[in-house]
Design a protein around this nucleic acid. Sequence first.
RNA 1: GUCCCCAUCGUCUAGCGGUCCAGGACUCCGCCCUCUCACGGCGGCAACAGGGGUUCGAAACCCCUUGGGGACGCCA
Length: 468
Amino acid sequence: MTIRTRFAPSPTGYLHIGGARTALFSWLYARRHGGTFILRIEDTDLERSTAESVNAILEGMTWLGLEYDEGPFYQTERFDRYKEVIQQLLDGGHAYHCYCTREELDEMRAGQMERKEKPRYDGRCRHRAEPRAGVPPVVRFKNPDEGAVVIDDIVRGQVVFQNRELDDLIIARSDGSPTYNLTVVVDDLDMGITHVIRGEDHLNNTPRQINILQALGAHLPRYAHLSMIHGADGAKLSKRHGAVSFMQYRDDGFLPEALLNYLVRLGWSHGDQEVFSIDEMIELFDIDHVSHSASAFNPDKLLWLNHHYLMHADPLHVAHHLRWHLGQRGIDPAQGPDAADMVAVQRERCKTLVEMADASVFFYREFAHYEEKAAKKNLTTETAPVLRALAAALESLHDWNKEALHQAVTNVAETLGVKLGSVAQPVRVAVSGTSVSPPIDATLELLGREKTLARLRRAVQHIGEGAA
RNA sequence: GUCCCCAUCGUCUAGCGGUCCAGGACUCCGCCCUCUCACGGCGGCAACAGGGGUUCGAAACCCCUUGGGGACGCCA
């Protein structure tokens, strides 16, 4: 049997952490078993579904690299099929028209709540065959009243629901449109889904869906309900916890592989291993080791992983992303050091591409001001001779490379009888405008002779002006 | 309120009856390295929710309590 999994988001919001993890696990499960991964957009709620959300989901999936083999399928394009199944259930006596008004239902619920009962439809229209004037009916599924539904969940084990806890859910609205529990069942059936991997919030829907599936005489898929992901504060993950759209992570300077690695470890483990390449995830992923308990989102660990990938990924690959961020700052990456070289010198001190881009701006563009504190300490009448001496040495430097530059800086320090830091730090401030940069030899090498000399002179002049 | 799920360091987790006075990772704190910031290296703080069982033996199995979470829509 070929495994077929699906990710079925509703486009009523953006792709968030929880959704992305569900998608990842479904994708991994399919990939792990040589199966098929399907994307289905559950847009039956016309009121709340938006094209923006659909785009955000598609864009997020692409950015993460979770490619789907089939789809995207849109439920709004399958209404004819749902109507057909609803009629089939009606004909088979598994569903009936309900003429209850919203007011009636509200009243019933209020009474049940008051009696501390579970709010549920009491099935009063099961036997009320005659239509009521002016009340367009909904269609309800006739849920069995006896017995129990036993779910053999792959992550949770056996979960039992008594049928008497369930009620006759609406499968078609009064305007004839199908509802969630019906469309899911029909689609999972028609699309041949073998494994339904989804959030735990759907566990309660599962017995209802199984009952409909059984009324249809269908073969049941396997279910795997993943625990929820909470925000760093332990509360429910919501739009208030930042990252409104998953694409925010791209904008914030994260690499997709870091997100994927973080996500896979949220609720799944393989011994003590923390770092997984995509190939390793696919090779090692198994539902046996999926956690039963909810987990909290930990931004610090994501940052650590992102830094790890910045450090260890192919600089050419990271450079591709860095260029995008430099572009966001109005910089043409072609007008300056090669981005891959920049990655090589910057990556150990940057946790995000945003930090890296910010720290790299001075290589491409003249800075307007010296950082006040740094200039006050390092650009002084005492350091001016140091800067002049280095400028002189560099003007005649034959080979503009790291080794020669290091030697030149060391020589100046020795000649003047000062420590290396007494040369490097003023030079750093002179060329970068700040007190932080890659090692001075690497900085000067990448900056180039022209910019280096110009900035050393500019700094000397700056000191002169301050003294005068 | 009713039903369902869950429960190991602050967080992510290892653990599938003895090798656990509980291991790894993030964070935090020391020390070393050092031209800045970092990287790196070494070390440290920190947990089996509580109570009953089962067993020669329980973090692991069972029950209860407590505490979290989810569901209870003509939303998905």
